[in-house]
Design a protein around this nucleic acid. Structure first.
Lengths: 271, 271
DNA sequence: CAGATCAAGTTGGCCAGCCAACTTTGCTGA
DNA sequence: TCAGCAAAGTTGGCTGGCCAACTTGATCTG
């Protein structure tokens, strides 16, 4: 992000925070968003400080007001700033949140915390999909799926049991991976399988015999469960996964607002 | 949403679904979004069907392409459709999701499911805020808070224990409410306290003696915990709440994508 | 027949401008 | 002194236009 200006007075706080955000994305609005995010998280505008006006930012970055608004929409969606008519935007929090890849990939998440992720493939089988799996992965009757069971560790400590169902075209690739490969997600990306959208459901379940054995907990012990269905850019489901975490190892965090939201609370009818 | 047109061929699927979406919001793009959402959730475009082109929608609704794009951005954020350059948008799922108010207000959520929400105020005290509370609610040292403890029920069955901390200016209002009022949120809105942004963290905890007594479970039994900090339009915190649900009564659901996301997974350092 | 090429269709991105709605501030006048 | 009002500042919303990047399907070519 190239831009240089006066830097006089509190108004101009975020004037030189282009360090970490040089090539945050090809699109201008992403670069602006990254630069502003950097400024906000480093506290350049203060705890509940006010951002410069859209027009001022447009001039500073040498872009149109529309582009600035696009950038600010990103920050608003992430819960970094408020936004209401008539007054400047206000800094809400200094959250981090890279988020999408962190949520999708255990490996990516672990590394972003500086932990050492591990994974041991317990089993991988191929079999016809049952009704629920066909529903989730949008498969034809008789279609086959690949089912993996993996124990995930942080610094060699068991943390999570992962049961994933892949449709055939993805499962074929997974089956060819070495059993000790840490990140399936990254390997699949290399082979052209992209993850772009995911639906998550979070609740509590009790450990079954298999969970207990792998995680080293009692049978019946509570586990935090995350179920996830992931789709590629074309909208085709590529993964249906159920992760069970030992309590105390993770928490899920989400921001929502009247402006943008995609979170909801369900009754537990389904299973 | 007023618009009437040809209705010939599959292309024109969503041509007459203006029923539930007439006055979805003053803004045009919200009306368009509501109309399209209605069409999608009723299956007018099929399971993985393709939406009409932006230009076609613009003509159909009599608005500019920019407005249509704004509407589609809403649907994309909700995970209803994909969106990539070069090809029509594809229907992802037929999820419901009104979401924000449902997540914020137990009462609103319960009613949207057709259940009868109840609430019993167990205690309400006023005391100086501790360090954590000052941090969360951004209060000055020495500031006072109001703390409520409520047992929440669905059709008279205990479901959740809610512990909420309010800053003084909100707590004063809460303290004046009758102890049997069901929805604090709605009452506060009447008094001009608006909830617009919220940060949620979801994990598992074990029931303490108080939880066990109120919910009728064993001490040490697992509970699904949601912690929530809510702010008003100006960015001022108005509520910090900790809800503990009996397992099997709720699940939290979230959509995220490379395009828009606000969800992340944390290590459990804090408490 | 398979592969490469091309053209049309579609979304992403950016710009410039305009007005409405709302907030804040400062001034005016009782 | 205080209430009311006016003006300036700011974001929300919408339009119209332009080009680039990408996808898809048809066509051409070896």
């Amino acid at each position: 992000m190239a831009r240089a200006l006066s830097t006089t007075g509190a108004q101009d706080a975020g004037a030189e925070h282009s360090a970490a955000a040089q090539d945050a994305g090809g699109a201008l609005y992403r670069q602006v968003a990254a630069d502003l995010r950097e400024a906000i998280t480093t506290g350049a505008y203060g705890e509940a400080g006010r951002l410069p006006a859209e027009g001022a930012l447009a001039e500073r970055y040498g872009v149109s007001r529309g582009t600035v608004r696009q950038a600010l929409a990103v920050l608003r969606a992430d819960g970094l700033v408020t936004s209401r008519r008539g007054t400047r935007r206000v800094v809400l929090g200094n959250a981090r949140v890279q988020s999408f890849s962190e949520l999708l990939s255990f490996t990516h998440w672990a590394r972003s915390m500086g932990e050492e992720p591990g994974g041991r493939l317990e089993s991988l089988i191929r079999r016809p999909a049952d009704a629920a799996e066909r529903e989730q992965l949008r498969l034809e009757p008789g279609a086959e799926v690949y089912v993996t069971l993996r124990l995930r560790t942080l610094s060699d400590v068991p943390v999570m049991v992962e049961r994933t169902v892949y449709p055939a075209h993805v499962g074929q690739l997974v089956a060819q991976l070495p059993p000790d490969v840490v990140s399936h997600t990254e390997q699949l990306r290399e082979h052209g399988i992209l993850f772009t959208d995911a639906d998550h459901t979070i609740d509590v379940v009790t450990a079954n015999a298999e969970d207990a054995k792998l995680l080293g907990c009692r049978r019946g012990a509570p586990l935090l469960r995350e179920r996830r269905r992931t789709t590629d850019p074309t909208g085709r489901p590529v993964e249906w996964s159920q992760d069970r975490y030992l309590p105390g190892t993770v928490a899920f965090s989400v921001h929502n607002s009247l402006a943008t939201s995609a979170l909801s609370r369900h009754a537990r009818a389904d299973d």
